[in-house]
Each structure stands twice: as structure tokens, then as C-alpha cells.
């Protein structure tokens, strides 16, 4: 029972973690892309379509990644090159992604999908209790953790990460020092799009291998909120995503028990718990100030 719950928690948390780690990098560069939901749902439809038509979930994953990246380039072009308002453009991107994915996916509704196979290492996967949890996941679960570690290392240990944080903190100064603010932000936006696409593909290939319109069901927005509540720190993102996943699954298990608590209240719990815990651990105001990208959402126009 416990093992089963943990396994479902992991599958619930992984798409959030994938989308959020991408958005974290985007926001660290000073760009607020509210289109995560739209990029995710595009990744979901593209991943499903390619998986079904080629029979290969791995190709489907690649397709999801490419779809998310492609949609993010629209956002990048509109907000970075044309310097449009980031909030409005991000919202538009979400609506655009939801609409286009519904159109593209119309023929796939009801088509049975192919599930991404889970890892199976003889010996390791068969270890009682922990074997399936540690060694029996699908590849994207491992990818999500690898991404968190890689992003953490990149942001705080490499020069490229330093430049990215500098661009997010003060784009005027970064420009004055000769860094290519717009190029850095394009790369960050593309990374964010690819990650959101992966997260979407996970939903339609691994979580529930089928396509229904609007199947992201608000997960893009939760990923966005997680980024903010984690104070833009990758490690806290893991806590947030898994906490959210865990409370979601637990309240699902609690609903049929008839505890006398309205089901609507239980549905609300994951959001409440995540916000409360993340706010509590980001109690250090000074550190939060340092980690908040000061240029978040601000347009940049070089003066020349």
C-alpha cells in the first residue's frame, strides 16, 4: 500500500518538477513566462501524437520537448525582440497553447496510447519495498532529478550561471559590462520551453497514456507558483513538487474514507500545504531578497 502510494506520488510530482525547473531558469534570467501551461499542453499533444504514430515513446518525448521549445520561441520573439509586455504575452501563450493543442489533438481523442516503459534492472528492481521506487521508474523521473542537480550546479557553480543570474538581477549593468542580455534570455526561455514540453509529454506518455483536451489541468500554473514559493532555489523546488504530489495523492485516498470533511476542502489541501510549507522554509527575508531576480518581468531595451 505505502509503496503504491509513493509510486503514484512520484508520477504526480514529476511533471510539476520538470516544468518548474525550466521556469526557474527563465525567471532567474529576469523573464516572467506565464505561458508554462500552454507550453506543457503543446508538449503533451505533440508527445502523444508522435508516440502513437511512430510507436516509440522515446520519439514522443523528443517531440514534446521540441514542441515546448518551439512555442517558447514565439514568446521569446514577442517579449524579447519586440519587447511586448511579458505578463500579457505569457497569458496569451497559455490560451494559444490550449486552443492549438485541442485542434491538433482532436483526431487522437479516444486513441489508446503507449506507456513509457519503466526501468527494469534484474536484481536491483526486485529488491523488496525500495527496489521499484529507486530503480523501477521511467526515464523521465531520473531526468527530472538530473535536471535539478544540473541546474543547481550551473546556476551557482559556473560562469554561465553567474552571467544568467547577473542578467536577471540588473540587466542594465550586465549590458554595460558587455553581456548579451537578449541572447542569454532567449536561451533561458528556450530551456524553459523544452522543460515544460517534457513535463507535458510526461503527462500524455507516462502519467496517463492518452490524450484529452486541456489535459494539463492547471499543472503549468502550479509549476509557476512553485518557482516563486521555492524562492527560485532548485532544491526547494523538489520539496515543493513532491509535497504537492504527496498531498494530492493522500487526499485522493482520503476522499472515499468518508471523514466527514467536504471533498472540496480535501481538494484544496495540496495547494494550502505547499504554500504554507514553502513560505515557512523561506522565512529568511534577507536570503529571499538575494534570490529574487530583481529584473523579473522588466523589459530590456539597450540604449544604442
Amino acid at each position: 500500500m505505502l509503496e503504491a502510494i509513493i509510486l503514484t506520488v512520484i508520477t504526480a510530482a514529476t511533471p510539476l518538477l520538470l516544468a518548474a525547473i525550466g521556469e526557474l531558469v527563465v525567471e532567474r534570467s529576469g523573464v516572467l513566462n506565464l505561458g508554462v501551461e500552454g507550453m506543457m499542453v503543446m508538449g503533451a499533444v505533440a508527445g502523444f501524437a508522435i508516440t502513437v504514430s511512430t510507436g516509440s515513446p522515446l520519439l514522443g518525448i523528443v517531440a514534446g520537448l521540441v514542441a515546448g521549445l518551439a512555442v517558447s520561441l514565439i514568446f521569446g520573439f514577442v517579449t524579447l525582440t519586440l519587447v511586448a509586455n511579458q505578463v500579457a504575452s505569457g497569458l496569451a501563450l497559455t490560451l494559444f497553447g490550449l486552443g492549438l493543442s485541442g485542434l491538433l489533438g482532436e483526431g487522437f481523442v479516444g486513441t489508446p496510447g503507449i506507456k513509457l516503459p519503466s526501468l527494469s534492472i534484474p536484481g536491483l528492481t526486485d529488491i523488496p519495498y525500495v527496489g521499484r521506487i529507486l530503480f523501477g521508474q521511467d526515464i523521465l523521473v531520473y531526468v527530472s532529478f538530473a535536471l535539478v542537480l544540473a541546474v543547481s550546479w550551473f546556476l551557482f557553480r559556473t560562469r554561465g550561471g553567474l552571467v544568467l543570474r547577473a542578467v536577471g538581477d540588473n540587466h542594465v549593468s550586465a549590458h554595460a559590462l558587455g553581456y548579451k542580455v537578449i541572447r542569454v534570455r532567449y536561451l533561458a526561455v528556450m530551456f524553459g520551453g523544452a522543460c515544460a514540453g517534457l513535463g507535458g509529454a510526461y503527462l500524455s506518455i507516462a502519467y496517463t497514456p492518452l490524450w484529452v483536451e486541456n489535459m494539463t489541468a492547471g499543472r503549468g500554473w502550479i509549476a509557476l507558483a512553485l518557482v516563486v514559493f521555492s524562492s527560485w532555489l532548485p532544491s526547494r523546488l523538489v520539496i515543493g513538487a513532491y509535497l504537492f504530489g504527496a498531498v494530492t495523492i493522500l487526499q485522493l485516498h482520503a476522499q472515499p474514507l468518508g471523514l466527514g470533511v467536504p471533498s472540496q476542502f480535501l481538494s484544496m489541501l495540496p495547494y494550502l500545504a505547499t504554500v504554507v510549507v514553502l513560505v515557512a522554509i523561506s522565512g529568511n527575508r534577507r536570503a529571499t531578497r538575494f534570490n529574487t531576480p530583481a529584473c523579473l518581468g522588466a523589459p530590456f531595451v539597450p540604449d544604442r
Binding site: 553567474l162 543570474r165 547577473a166 538581477d169 540588473n170 542594465v172 549593468s173 550586465a174 554595460a176 559590462l177 531578497r289 538575494f290 534570490n291 529574487t292 531576480p293 530583481a294
Partner: peptide, 12 residues
Amino acid sequence: HFSLFEALTVAE
């Protein structure tokens, strides 16, 4: 007007 990054350390 200083071109420093407030959120970063002196060394960074």
C-alpha cells in the same frame, strides 16, 4: 550610477 549586481557577492 553603479553597475553592480546587488544580489551577488563582491567576488561574483
